[in-house]
Write a protein that binds this DNA or RNA. Structure first.
Lengths: 246, 246
DNA sequence: ACCTAGACTTGATCTGGGTCAAGGGTTCGC
DNA sequence: GCGAACCCTTGACCCAGATCAAGTCTAGGT
């Protein structure tokens, strides 16, 4: 499934090399890339791109968390995507950004100037195909989230979010997704609310309720221990298979 | 924007030829396609594919409307995509379906056997690129819908749905999206509710309210007249630009 | 013509989550 | 060490939309 993740050609802190570009490629392409690649750092809370801005680059998250958000004129906001390390940002072929991209934590991104990247994509078909696969994955994630937003209760929403972050975190640490899981929440209660279509008060109340009921333990406000991942999945109302089926 | 829509090489009732395959291609590729192409018809209410089924084909909607839906064990369902004529169905590279695909009205699809289609995709890079563009469009639509599901009121949700269907319908008829619009709702109140994350009673009440307030007129239950599209957009809480910016 | 079934509407009531308000805990800078 | 700024929690109350319960309307079928 993650057949490209173990490739280590090139700089290992740059996930795009592994996932979008390096997959099944030869060293020549890495040479090509190095001329158009650069890193950018952002502080927590900083906006990476405003919706409507010209996109000068595409890239991927090296460390930290970014979020895609949409805002209505009256200030209501909805997070429409959570970008974790190794996630791709940007739209080859799109001139302007469709969403605000905000650094939710301190953030390092690996960027490629858009035009040269697009040219390279045309010349190397498997990059386009890898990008298509990644986009399809994002689409699946977005659609799964539509079920969360449209039909789940506040408690189920929280459990869903915790299980996504917990699973992702655990797989990065190469642990299993069974039994006990420990991780730090990279989001404020407000950011969680924006992702879940709730208010921060409701998020806080439901976190307390899940703690009271023994589904999670909290050390401080952000450090979470999940004694039974199955129990959490159950609270989330998901099928037990854990999303193994694409 | 719809640069590929006016191509008329090949059978004009088969949108995939126009949108996914024919774009900027030469006649040879049409020959290749004809060996692996077939049509399928479905009655309203029939299920095209069950989630988890092996996908034997990809294809596109020729006429009628299909929907992608997700269902929880307890029966709560959420529609995660509405497939209108010319929309693409299926995932090159994916073995199994992720969602139920249901014919919401009588439906004709133009199908391609999946394996040969994938092979063709590898050989003709611009098809992969067209598919990437289409997938990015779907992703944008899904994310826009996340804002609807997460943050909009029932009245705004209904107005959003009506404006999407109305706009799509009007553009197919080559009318503008300004001023008056007339169309038939292709969805039952229940299907609307499933798409909007509401109950059918709430949908019905809000339709009545929009009618009472003069935002829409109803002839029968399904035939809708929108005297002012701007007014409708306003009720939907959208920016005025009408989504012209991809 | 009548009967039935499915799609829709409308009313009455209930409730989950929003809103408003008042705190508490930590981490800064001074 | 003290105030200020965040971030978070908890309580009291309210309301949009869910739920439960009758209906109405229309299209087919006999």
């Amino acid at each position: 499934m993650n057949e490209t993740l173990d490739l280590t050609i090139g700089c290992e802190s740059c996930p795009i090399k592994h996932r979008a570009v390096c997959a099944r490629c030869d060293a020549d392409e890495l040479e090509t890339l190095d001329g158009i690649k650069y890193y950018r750092s952002f502080e927590a809370g900083q906006t990476v791109i405003w919706s409507g801005d010209r996109m000068e680059f595409v890239g991927s998250v090296v460390s930290g968390i970014a979020s895609l958000t949409q805002t209505m004129e009256d200030g209501r906001t909805q997070m429409v995507g959570l970008l974790l390390p190794s996630d791709f940002v940007g739209r080859p072929g799109r001139e302007f950004a469709s969403y605000d991209v905000v650094a939710t934590t301190d953030l390092v991104m690996c960027c490629f100037r858009r035009k040269p990247f697009e040219n390279m994509m045309v010349e190397t078909p498997h990059v386009a195909q890898r990008l298509l696969e990644m986009t399809l994955d994002e689409l699946d994630a977005a659609r799964e989230w539509m079920l969360v937003l449209g039909r789940k209760t506040a408690r189920e929403k929280i459990a869903s979010l915790l299980s996504i972050i917990g699973r992702r975190d655990a797989s990065l640490k190469l642990e299993g997704t069974i039994g006990k899981i420990v991780f730090d929440l990279p989001l404020t209660r407000e950011a969680m609310a924006d992702y879940l279509g709730l208010t921060l008060e409701t998020v806080s109340r439901q976190m307390s309720a899940l703690k009271r009921d023994g589904v999670i333990e909290l050390q401080g406000k952000r450090h979470v221990t999940v004694p039974s991942f199955e129990r959490l999945m159950d609270e989330a109302g998901d099928d037990a298979d854990g999303g193994m089926m694409a």
